[in-house]
Design a protein around this nucleic acid. Sequence first.
DNA 1: GAGTTTGAAACT
DNA 2: CAGTTTCAAACTC
Length: 807
Amino acid sequence: MDVVSPELNILLPDEIMDTEAIEDVPHSQSDGNEVQSQSVVDTSVPMETDTPLVPENLSLCSDAASTQALTPSTATDSTLSISSGGQISISSTPSPVLTLKPAMATSTSTTKTTDSVTGTTVSTSGLQKLTTPFTISAANHQIILNKVASSQATEAAKSAGTPPQVIKQEGQKLLVTAIGKSGQPIVLQLPHTGSKPGVSPASGDTKTSAPQFKVVTIGGRPELKPVTGSPGNQLTTLQAQQLKTVQIAKKTPASSAAPIKFIITKTVNSKGLSPQTSVPPVITGRVLTQNSPGMTPRTITLSETHNTCVQSIPGKKIAISPLKTPSKVTVVSVASPTSNASQKSMTLPVNVALGQQILTVQQSTSGSPVKVATSQAAAQNIKPVQSVAVGGVGGSQFKTIIPLATQPNVQQIQVPGSRFHYVRLVTATTASSPGQPSGPSTSSIQTAKPMVVSAGAVRMSVPIVPAQPVKQVAPKPLTSAAQVVTTPQTQQRLIMPATPLPQIQPNFTNLPPGTVLAPAPGGGNVGYAVVPAQYVTQLQQSPFVTLASSTSFPAAAGIQTQARLPLNGLSAAETTSRPRKPCNCTKSQCLKLYCDCFANGEFCNNCNCNNCFNNLEHETERLKAIKTCLDRNPEAFKPKIGKGKEGESERRHSKGCNCKRSGCLKNYCECYEAKIMCSNICKCVGCKNFEESPERKTLMHLADAAEVRVQQQTAAKTKLSSQISDLLMRTTPVISSGGGRLPYTFVTKEVLEATCECLLERAKKTEQTHQPQAEAERLILEEFGHCLMRIISSAGKAKAGCTSINC
DNA sequence: GAGTTTGAAACT
DNA sequence: CAGTTTCAAACTC
């Protein structure tokens, strides 16, 4: 049902919005009352792949069965936050905040609102009512609607001494005219439920049958206009005990070439529970990005289940780096009974590429290996909501909601501009004590197994799309069962479970098996510490191995990697399959900064180098080399790309380049390689790497086009592969399901040869009969089909025979 | 894949 | 600090 009008394309944020604004609302909204949903609904995450040029839906399905369609006008820098079961907020980044709050809501909106305007109501008729007392704040351009989800809302209302209010599912509209650049009203429509398709004024999309929230946040100008409720549609808010926000920020107007980026964040707050013990509701869905303004609107669908005892998980975010093409949202679900107090909220940049699978991670309790499951724990009534942030150029971020099976176990690690994508999964294990340090520093090597960094809490950071080597090698004491990964900017650590993670593994292609990413010494802004597999093995075999060498590295190596990575990220193919780039050093022994591995603080692994000393076997030499480099330049291992001085937000090369012949438009130039402009500190000659440079723009367009092509190809391949796999599974279900040989296993070399012979024979016949080429191709294909059928048939017979024998 | 170009790193 | 050399990646053919 939810439809986003084509105008949304223009309105969609080009940049990623800062997550903090999102977090503020939920936190402020929490009050002592709890709103609980009656039932836990299916938490399955949509897996379908979005198709370019096909309108997509952005919706949040919730038990409340309220859907809202937003038709934004051309607005900039505004965000719309909608909290199902709690509040709906529409905010613009610059400032003013529109807050819609329940009239009887016990919770007082503490959102950062200035010049707030209250009293606007949106009427709805039907099963549910949403009180529309809301606050419009000019500070953040936010409208927050507090809504009580379904029965919980009713109960809450009863408890409050007021009759329950119901929001009718049909024809409900929320017109928001306050947010719009040109004064065009934004329509929030509560979609029809069931099979009855609602008529959406926006675009008429009627695909959604389930109750949904459609949340669209669009950028807007600072000015705020009154929110108008459509006649007959009243938005009634009972009590907002849960706050969920979805925000889409638009930093700058999206260009035709640049993809429009959604920023949707949703957090759920509930009262009475501390953040540590909070359990957010499960929200499932996918996030799709708009490819170009002219295209049909793309929507984001997020299914939401209202749950009891919903707790906000501040900072639970997943960042998705912006892509030119629609991407799926990687959903990480982590189920665990308890939360870890020591956990910190993090943003997670996830470079979502076409065909990328939705990741659902269910985390087990402490002491047990981290589990990854596609299904969420059914027993968990409380499901954490996690926001998904899509990293954008210039640090802006795309946010969306990430469902969590249970507790705030997933934390995002956001590295703006970096292609490293990490999901931090924190097991809120019961064993973990709040005060217990979770860092690797407290852990020790216990076994020769994959390590558990912290005894108290298991943390997992999933580098979804590490395009480049993680920088720094800072081996840490390891315990068992997981790998540790840290991000450059924070102390986030990733503990990979010893058990393979099918959903995640493809994303670790650039990390060698056994690779351990540990936080570099010094905490804080520390680069990644990468321990090659062999190093891990050595560590496991020799618990007394000192990791002092890693300490020699300055903290910032991780950012250095970031600098080398294009802001827009790699193409889907690159991001999903490209391994860490091996070095080819021949003379430097990989102990000089010529070697990228060494410069990044990594051990060489699977490289093509000769006479490599950048490994454990030559730890002494390596340490010496590190010291030499640091003596020569204390900043040698620090990131080259960082923020400019005096509050400059743009990244820039710390030293500047010295290009003379490349015009700074080739990868020889470190600035260009990092996809940043040359700055005044560069000493380049004939620089063409500046904003207005036509040459640069041309190159960028070409690169974008190439990227799009790659993504499309990747998507096509993925789809084809999926179809083939599906076909194989469907054609011989008995064979594949009976524990026998899979169908393709019958395609032996001999079978292949026979098939080829048949095809060749058929080709010869067509030649001899002077068949037209088209006819010849048809006959050959037909023959191929026959061959396939024979193979399948034979496989089935073989299986049947085997089964009979077994019986 | 070999050879060339390029600019950072290393050296003097 | 400047000039030169070394080096490995980027690029071209």
